[in-house]
Design a protein around this nucleic acid. Structure first.
Lengths: 153, 153
DNA sequence: CTGCCTGCAAACTCTTTGCACGAAT
DNA sequence: ATTCGTGCAAAGAGTTTGCAGGCAG
């Protein structure tokens, strides 16, 4: 799904839910979809303000749930107190995160077995799986040797 | 490891690190190890105050990191804004959590493959795995039918 | 005695919310 | 013209921290 397709999908989603297509919401969308890495709400606020300086923090926080509910963004919580967001991949395939504790970068890896695991484990307890998270925290080997993370990290 | 063994381990750890064995720290330890389910910092404060009413919130928050660093407690973050804690199992075998979104209860399941997965995935990126988290969120089947979670959930 | 520990309360971070104004439909 | 959306600032929740006095070693 291209960015412009996603933009259309966002507008459709808003209309369909009876929500209004405002310049602020579009600026937030555009800022989010220009990113290649994960970003926080605060970073998104600054990025969106560069597009439309009338965007406020409150509107960012009110728009993020809309974008995650519509599956345009994915929310990633790595337990640091603040949430990260990222444009969602085309397919809904589950991913695992690898978080480098040296450079705080978040890598994502396809983990197709996650769905199976979640369903299996939940049904053993008489539950029905809704979602699953798999996260690995790791040190950067290059960081340990050279004091700086390599390009990849 | 019995609770009294763990208590001794806690005291040894404190001494060894040059930290003092205070009544407050022992009350917090005792409160934590009397629990069978996960608990929050606030719950631990109340439990510890029932043992020693001089325990303050600040001391609970200052003691929790000591107990997790010494591997007596395990920290569980299910993305709800507050952290949960739980006495650590004897062996250091990795566990996955299943969180019931109906009753907020947290179940734990041994997941021995987690170490292997973390190491494999991290090394592919030139990293060294430190820890991994696997969490499944799920609905309670009984809740959906009867409006209340069954004993297990 | 010395210096770490403590309780208290204020500060902090991230996020949410009440309100009156403004803009989308 | 309605009604929802917005910015602002204050409130909230959970956690951390500065300080003066207290207790462990």
């Amino acid at each position: 799904m291209s960015t412009s397709e996603a933009r259309d999908k966002f507008k459709s989603y808003l209309s369909q839910k009876g929500l209004r297509v405002t310049n602020q919401r579009l600026a937030i969308f555009d800022a989010a979809f220009a990113q290649k890495e994960h970003f926080t709400a605060e970073q998104l606020l600054n990025l969106a303000r560069a597009i439309d300086d009338s965007v406020s923090r409150a509107t960012v926080y009110r728009t993020l749930p809309i974008m995650t509910e519509s599956a345009l963004l994915r929310e990633v919580d790595i337990g640091t107190g603040e949430k990260y967001y990222r444009p969602n991949a085309e397919n809904g395939a589950p991913v695992a995160q690898v978080v480098c504790v040296d450079c705080d970068r978040i890598f994502e890896i396809s983990a197709p077995f996650l769905d199976w695991y979640g369903n299996t484990v939940a049904s053993k307890l008489g539950l029905t799986a809704v979602s699953q998270r798999l996260q690995v925290t790791a040190h950067c080997n290059a960081f340990r040797e050279t004091g700086a993370c390599a390009r990849r990290c």
